[in-house]
């Protein structure tokens, strides 16, 4: 017979976290440790390096903001930075606007074939990035698919040159490359919408257009925000597309960063450019998220 007097359960000394919390932390720590060691620490070093100076083959480790001064004041770097952000901004807007109807279609009309549509949309993303980009050169080139077709149809007399080796080509190619990234977050947000809300709006007499702008769009805004960031942030730093299709007027900041680390052998300046780009992109992203939040709030 158990007749032990009841007692307050002893807790091991200094146990701030429950066993499950410890277990969770222990399990996540390898991935976290890896990210700290291979991402956070290197990024810190990049930041440090950006305040050093390259003297031909030697590094001067005196801390200075000279590289940042150069990165901001030099017209070429400034041009590349602004162009990167503008191109990336246009790519983002185009991609998201083109992607929304597809996400809408799959979420609301995909029926039992939803997974098939999503698979079809994602497949191109997994095929060789380099070759995909290069193929756009084939499509947009002087003797490319577009020009040959238009010439063959007699729509143009001379091959078009405005579609290759400039910013237009970069925009088209990037919009294509990042399409799945825009569709998926919007799709996820749309498929979470409770359809009874849409029916309620219909009952209240809203037409399809009003219903879309008053109910569907605001409710899927989280997906649109995610899509925007997922496309905008990485495309600012894209290297391959501007290099292959941008010509000289389509080069972007990543190309310059690579040059600094490579041919120019000025890693500190390259680091400063990389850090500046990250800071600018992060600021724009944060501002965008905050503005969006305020906008949604003001609409109640």
């Amino acid at each position: 017979m158990a007749e032990a007097a009841s007692k307050q359960r002893k807790r091991p000394a200094l146990r701030f976290l429950s066993p499950n919390e410890w277990r969770g932390l222990a399990l996540i720590s390898p991935a976290l440790g890896y990210a700290v060691l291979m991402l956070a620490a290197p990024l810190l070093l990049v930041f440090l390096l950006s305040m050093w100076t390259q003297n031909y083959l030697d590094l001067d480790t005196t801390l200075t903001f000279a590289n940042y001064r150069e990165a901001i004041t030099d017209p070429l770097y400034r041009l590349l930075m602004i162009r990167s952000i503008i191109i990336s901004g246009i790519v983002t807007v185009v991609t998201v606007i083109l992607a929304y109807p597809v996400a809408y279609f799959v979420a609301f009309y995909g029926g039992p074939r939803k997974s098939m549509w999503l698979l079809l949309i994602t497949i191109p993303f997994w095929t060789s990035y380099l070759i995909r980009i290069f193929l756009w050169k084939v499509i947009l080139g002087y003797n490319g698919v577009v020009n040959s077709s238009l010439l063959g149809l007699g729509l143009i007399e001379e091959p078009l040159t405005i579609i290759l080796y400039n910013a237009n080509a970069v925009v088209i190619t990037l919009a294509h490359a990042w399409a799945p990234f825009a569709i998926l977050p919007i799709y996820v947000a749309l498929s979470r919408i409770d359809t009874s809300l849409l029916e309620a709006a219909r009952d209240l007499g809203d037409g399809p257009v009003r219903r879309f702008f008053r109910v569907t769009l605001p409710l899927s805004m989280s997906g649109v925000v995610a899509a925007t960031l997922i496309v905008f942030i990485p495309t600012v730093g894209d290297y391959v597309t501007p290099r292959l299709l941008g010509g000289t007027n389509g080069l972007m900041i990543a190309n310059m960063i690579q040059i600094q680390f490579g041919k120019a052998n000025n890693a500190p300046l390259g680091s400063a450019l990389a850090v500046s780009a990250m800071v600018i992109v992060a600021s724009i992203s944060i501002a965008y998220v905050l503005l969006n939040r305020r906008f949604l709030k003001s609409r109640g």
Binding site: L32, L39, I233, P234, A254, I257
Partner: peptide, 26 residues
């Protein structure tokens, strides 16, 4: 923590490349 580990999903790959290169060179 999870968000930090997922950061490389959105980080431009050139940044990852540059950061690791800097470490290796140093």
């Amino acid at each position: 923590i999870v968000g930090f580990i997922m950061v490389p999903l959105v980080l431009p790959e050139i940044i990852v490349g540059v950061a690791l290169l800097v470490v290796l060179v140093q």
